[in-house]
Nucleic acid binder design. Structure first.
Length: 419
DNA sequence: TCTGGGGTCCTAGGACCC
DNA sequence: TCTGGGGTCCTAGGACCC
């Protein structure tokens, strides 16, 4: 059996874990720059606040209903995620961390356990140790465990947050209940096409001929169909190094000068380099893009990206910053109001062993230098040391007016208890 | 005034090889 | 009249996930 464990309203729950006064109150968490709603507590969902709603369009609604608004605090969410996952890891040797708030657990060899009781216990422990409520779906395949998880979430009172699909009757009933658009792996496009031919539920989908599924949804759709039928087809995946790493941001205001953009791009490249070193990788290509603000159609629009093939594989902040700025100079045009930029490192290869170029003119001194920089930044706080091409004052330059403390990752922010 | 950020996989078609 | 067969690599675009 597979279990899918999913944290309920994860970001909102993280904020609430340290603010018990917000129990049963509506909470929303905003994206970077305090832009859009990216998480809602149950109470906020019940107020009809849609996912992705721009914050500035909903200020009235927030105020009227006493909604507690938070800027995204990713260091907090990342750390809380880590805590939840490490508890789950104690209950099975085979776990796949699928996203910041979800994990698949394979329960091979545990057939004789009372799985319902087992997961109820896990749920209690996670709640007690972290303050995060979770829902758990269990079934014969990964896709079906996703379905079971939806049922656990939808009917918390009846399921106590754990639902198991363990026979054919439950499987059929669940699939007939689930709207096709809510099936894992069926997005907006496929849902629309399927509904047009009167395929409305997950069950209808499993009745389609293989040839049709293959034609319109490729082998991906075919695998999904098999998995929903109860034949394990989508396998557990082991943790892999990333194939692409992106660092991109919208700005808090428009930029018009090349110099301003260079500073941003330099910072993004440095962060990409840090992420590369963190997974012991180098990149062989780098992409830089810039955009004007698409929400202001009255202004002239421009967007462009460029990929540069590097002369040698590297994860040096200095090299990547240099190449990123060379790339930027090639695509920058005067006379536009830029709102967003990003750096993406591609063609990622291992740091060791490293394939060196025949005439490799990379500077070998960068390796110990980066080690020293990482050491210092780890010890004295992220980005204590920066390149001179970066703004010494600020890292992201984002609007973050409702930021909560970093309760679990910064000693200065640790929670205070009255005595 | 103000609208996020970060990933994966698959396929078709073009360019090239012998 | 009539013009082969078998490959690889790369890229862009589409679809999906959280």
């Amino acid at each position: 059996m597979y279990a899918l464990v999913d944290c309920n309203n994860f970001y909102a729950s993280c904020e609430r874990a340290f603010r018990p006064d917000l129990n049963n109150k509506p909470i929303v968490v905003l994206s970077n720059n305090d832009g859009c709603v990216i998480a809602r507590s149950r109470e906020a969902k019940e107020l009809g606040i849609p996912m992705g709603a721009p914050a500035f369009k909903n200020e009235e609604l927030f105020k009227r209903n006493g909604v507690h608004v938070f800027s995204a605090n990713f260091p907090l969410y990342g750390d809380m995620s880590h805590r939840v996952m490490s508890i789950l890891s104690e209950y099975t040797p085979e776990i796949e961390i699928y996203s910041i708030d979800e994990a698949f657990m394979q329960m091979k060899g545990m057939e004789r356990l009372d799985l319902y009781e087992y997961f109820i216990e896990i749920r209690k422990k996670v709640l007690k140790w972290t303050g995060i409520p979770i829902s758990i779906g269990v079934a014969k395949t990964k896709a079906l465990s996703k379905v079971a998880n939806r049922i656990a979430k939808k009917f918390p009172d009846r399921t106590k947050g754990v639902y198991i699909i363990d026979d054919e009757i439950k499987r059929e009933k669940a699939l007939k209940w689930l709207d096709i658009g809510d099936v894992w792996g069926v997005g907006r496009r496929h849902a629309k096409r399927l509904k047009a031919i009167n395929i409305n539920t997950a069950y209808d989908f499993t009745e389609l001929p293989d040839t049709y599924v293959k034609k319109y949804m490729t082998v991906v759709g075919l695998r999904l169909k098999r998995d929903l039928l109860g034949f394990p087809t989508i396998a557990m995946e082991e943790a892999k190094v990333k194939q692409n790493i992106a660092t991109t941001r919208s700005f808090e205001k428009d930029y018009t000068e090349l110099l301003e953009l260079k500073e941003r791009v330099s910072t993004f490249a440095v962060v990409c380099a840090e992420k590369l070193r963190d997974q012991n990788s180098c990149c062989n290509s780098i992409m830089v893009f810039i955009h004007t603000n698409g929400f202001r159609p009255e202004l002239p629009q421009y967007s462009k990206n460029i990929v540069i093939k590097l002369p040698f594989p590297t994860n040096s902040s200095i090299e990547l910053s240099k190449f990123a700025n060379q790339a930027l100079e090639k695509i920058f045009r005067d006379g536009y109001h830029y709102k967003k930029a990003g750096v993406i490192v591609l063609d990622i290869t291992p740091d060791n062993p490293k394939q060196i170029a025949l005439f490799d003119n990379s500077n070998p001194k960068h390796v110990p230098l980066m080690k020293a920089i990482d050491f210092i930044n780890n010890k004295h706080g992220q980005h204590s040391l920066k390149l001179a091409s970066q703004d010494p004052a600020r890292l992201w330059k984002m609007k973050q007016e409702k930021l909560s403390p970093r309760y679990t990752t910064d000693l200065n922010d640790i929670i205070k208890i009255k005595v």
